[in-house]
Amino acid sequence: MAIANVNPTRMELTRLKKRLVTARRGHKLLKDKRDELMKQFLEVVRENKALRESVESRLGEVYDNFLIASAIMSRQVLEQSLMFPKYRAEVDIKTKNIMSVNVPVFETDENKSDLYSYGFYGTSQELDTSVNRLSGLLPDLLRLAEKEKSAQLLAVEIEKTRRRVNALEYVMIPQFEDKIKFIKMKLDENERSSTIRLMKVKDMMIQEARAK
């Protein structure tokens, strides 16, 4: 055990005691951080879940619309209609700091002016509907991606923090305590043995004096 190679000196004892205090304080701080991260994480996850459900159901509807459009129009005409999209969206990725975790923030810049990249002959209203709905879904889709990534990053951070808390709580602190105890015992032992030695020396000196 680590205790084996501890120098049982008073200096070491003071050093260890200091480290124990730091470890305790660090442990407390990390625990607070972990709890706060958990809180944030749960919030993100809750939002994420609601958002995901709504996006998924709407995506399903869009898919149905699109399917009907692709059934009414032939494949070639459908693909031709969508060959040359004119709707552009640009995404800026910025970051936001949650408890020292950098999570991404997507900012979209769309030209909302016009979605429809095709003429009216041979195309169906169902296609308009699905294109329109799909574009309405874009901001939410981006938001979902943002939340999903945040949750992921937060989870990693929580994991890391938790590992540190545990390391402090179950390894470092007990180790320090053990070492301190060991040094104390060793020092006490030394003290006792030197006392005994002194007593022994004193006895011997008394006997010598008597003999004289």
Binding site: F84, K86, S117, Y118, G119
Partner: peptide
């Protein structure tokens, strides 16, 4: 105006 819809509309007109 780089607009695919405008192109389609021109062709539809000629088509009819």
């Amino acid at each position: 105006i780089s607009d695919a819809q405008a192109v389609d509309i021109i062709f539809d007109g000629a088509l009819f």
